[in-house]
């Protein structure tokens, strides 16, 4: 920008160039800074989806909170799920700031969720029928989340990067809590080992899907590419999936568990994990709200929203006084 020229006198193109220069220099963008509409919309899509995923993600584990099999596990899983809710709150606040100039607020986020316009992670549409699933979610789903969130710790959007810093720190504890459940089951009775293997069989395809398709070919959109251009994220879906394999496949094998993909192996020549791909049409169906537990979990959320309408009205009335 030339000295002496006011920022608001610049053309849209010049503003855009100035913005790209800032993020290319590694500067952080803040909520009140000028940003291209495109960037704002990308952030809203990403962060609202992440926030609502944390909140919907509490529901499969919630199924196991009252049933956790010891006082210690009860306390640990209560703390863990509370953290997830807290992450959801933190992220929704970040999204709300971005939505404010568009005249939108949390009410819109909730309505978008109920209308299936706002999607949440594929994993939280799935069933969690045993205590083994509670362990698998905390160990591998949270493990996968750490990998995908860590790459955004240096995101160009400052408020998101700061929220992620706290979230990732807590996620590490969650993964340890999950690993502790998994180890107890793996070292337990034959029934407990079976519980664990069945849970892994159930979760494996969902974990592959968690990182998203390899390229825009499968989904027909290029959100991931755009987010890389804007330095919101730094790695592709496939790079993240490979990192996940590198970290967890050896650990899964070390526990004596079988991965339900007989083809998976590390190819030394290509320096890549080779694995059986999943059906990305099924992925699209699931995240569109047509997974095995989508209806039930959306109903829980919607029902509590409707049942508590009187509470929101009562609080709003108090505020008005």
């Amino acid at each position: 920008m030339q000295a002496g020229v006011q920022f608001d006198q610049l053309t849209e193109e010049e503003k855009h160039q100035h913005f790209m220069d800032r993020i290319n220099r590694g500067e952080k963008i803040e909520a009140d800074d000028w940003m291209p509409e495109d960037y704002r919309m990308s952030l809203i899509r990403l962060i609202a989806m992440h926030g609502i995923s944390e909140i919907m993600g509490a529901l499969p584990e919630k199924e196991w909170v009252p049933k956790a099999p010891s006082l210690h596990r009860k306390l640990a899983i209560m703390a863990k799920v509370q953290d997830e809710m807290g992450h959801g709150q933190l992220l929704l606040r970040v999204a709300e700031d971005l939505m404010a100039p568009l005249g939108k607020n949390r009410e819109d986020i909730m309505q978008d969720l109920f209308a299936k316009r706002l999607k949440f992670h594929n994993v939280f549409h799935m069933e969690a029928p045993t205590w083994g699933d509670a362990g698998m979610i905390a160990w591998l789903v949270d493990g996968a989340a750490i990998i995908s969130q860590s790459m955004m710790l240096d995101s160009s959007y400052g408020p998101y990067a700061r929220a992620l810093k706290r979230i990732c720190a807590e996620e590490v504890f969650h993964a340890q809590h999950g690993e502790s459940i998994i180890l107890a089951l793996a070292e337990g009775t034959p029934e407990q080992r079976k519980l664990l293997q069945d849970a892994l069989n159930r979760w494996w395809p969902s974990l592959i899907m968690f990182f998203g398709p390899k390229s825009a070919k499968e989904t027909g959109n290029s959100h991931a590419d755009k987010n890389i251009m804007y330095k919101i994220r730094t790695k592709t879906n496939e790079e993240l999936r490979q990192e996940f394999f590198t970290k967890y496949v050896p650990r899964i094998w070390a526990l004596g568990l079988t991965i339900p993909d007989e083809t998976i192996h590390f190819d030394e020549e290509q320096q890549l994990w080779i694995y059986k791909d999943v059906d990305w049409n099924e992925f699209k169906q699931i995240v569109s709200g047509n997974g095995p537990r989508s209806a039930n979990r959306l109903d829980l959320r919607k029902r509590s929203y409707d049942n508590n309408a009187w509470v929101r009205e009562a609080l709003a009335a108090k505020k008005a006084i």
Partner: peptide, 23 residues
């Protein structure tokens, strides 16, 4: 049992913290 069903997300966080303390 209320987890995820409280009137708003802030209360969900607070209520689950209280339940955890009581446990």
């Amino acid at each position: 049992e209320w987890l995820g069903l409280a009137p708003h997300i802030e209360e969900d966080v607070a209520f689950s913290s209280i339940n955890q303390d009581m446990m």
